[in-house]
Design a protein around this nucleic acid. Sequence first.
RNA 1: CGGGGCGUAGCGCAGUUUGGUAGCGCACUUGGUUUGGGACCAAGGGGUCGGGGGUUCGAAUCCCUUCGCCCCGACCA
Length: 481
Amino acid sequence: MAKKDKDFVKEVTSREEDYSQWYLDVILKTEMVDYAPVKGCMVIRPYGFTLWENMQALLDKKIKDTGHKNAYFPLFIPESLLQKEADHVEGFAPEVAWVTHGGNEKLAERLVVRPTSETIICSMYAKWIQSWRDLPVLINQWCNVVRWEKTTRPFLRTSEFLWQEGHTAHRTEEEAQEETLKMLEVYREFVEEDLAIPVITGLKTDKEKFAGALRTYTIEALMGDGRALQSGTSHNLGQHFAKVFDITFLDQDDQLKYVWQASWGVSTRLIGAIIMVHGDNRGLKIPPKVAPVQVVVVPIMPKKTREVVLEKAEALLVTLGEKFRMDIDDRDYSPGWKFNEWEMKGVPLRLEIGPKDIEKGQVVLVRRDTGEKFFVKEEDLDSTIEKLLAEIQDNMFQMALEFRTQNTTQCEDYEDFQKIIADRRGFVRANWCGHEQCEEKIKEDTKATIRCIPLKEDKMQGSCLCCGGEAKETVYFARAY
RNA sequence: CGGGGCGUAGCGCAGUUUGGUAGCGCACUUGGUUUGGGACCAAGGGGUCGGGGGUUCGAAUCCCUUCGCCCCGACCA
């Protein structure tokens, strides 16, 4: 199979040879992104951006269905606002971009380009919230943020990226906690059902949590090279921000109280996850629900029948195009060239139609995920495509789940653990005493970090992997992006 | 910020050791033949050799300087 793959797609470095290069080859050659003139910045090209738009549309609906409304807050945040929450500043200060001048004039107060919007949004919430009747406030925004990272990689960590950030304010601690978990569940559902990526939901350790949060919850996915990717986070902010931004309300009991807050976000990093979870040596494999093109029509056009075939293909596009995202490739390249091109671009289904098919009243459908070929009567086309797209979506999730299962191990012995992390990687379930010293030591020894303390999972028997002390939690370790 | 690598046509590279008219493959353009797994023939177009300075009769090549990108670390909700 590996050899066959190579014969088909010579554009792409194989994953076994150099995973990092494979990733870069794929995203550049499929025209998802290109490097921009500014270090760490990327251009998201139409093919990549359409994918993002499809993702946005599905997630945006879920966000609205859970009662949130979209708004937009400014890109610039006054330095004084960022300074207010001590942990928050400390966490973000090293990676913020500063605006110091307007034109040629030095600003009286420096502005930060938002690395996240808690502070500016909280400053507004303080104005807007007076009474328990004003709560909850449930706002989301889609925007760009900037974090001056030292090491960057397209989609996974860029200086500027696109995301959504939800910011909510609640009357009680319970409500804020409920919101935090509700949105984590929204993310899990979105990523698993729409992006076909299985995730582990869990709690971050104190060391790994968001700067300024009480608790951070995460969805963690396993990439094709065995490294984990934090794919979305939901934070219970407690009253940390409310207290420093003075977000208070008069409750029913006539007491002035601080609100309880949550914030949650996913970013274009998810595109990186799609690429690395589903991709193979032929290139991308995009889940049907978000694929920019779900069905690509490749007409086989010998000269004598060119017009007839093209006409037929275009007719199909008109009828089926109402229901499915489709594209027709009538460029003057050989059919084989086009097959490879669209496979590299990860289109779930290819529809071939040529003179022979027209005679028989059929078309040929080929699945990207399995390579299976189907000869389908024209009258069955609509229902067959619908069925196949659903099957592909499901199969992609199952394949990814199987990969994760095969690359998740349980471990009680530290030496075994080190070996696994060094050789096979993947997720390792192990016991932890809950102390940061052990967490640190494991990271120093192996570069693996605690990805999360899983929700809804039984604890293992045994003691702490590292110190042998009493185990407080069973956690997932992995090397992460 | 440390270590390594690379900047020559859109992309991938050779040429640099030993200075002497800037090349190859792919891509691109035109015409023709082709089209069910990356077709073929022919004719074309395209370069401040990352930037600046120096040495020299002469610099892609030697020297100095500078900028950028990639990879691996360190750092990083």
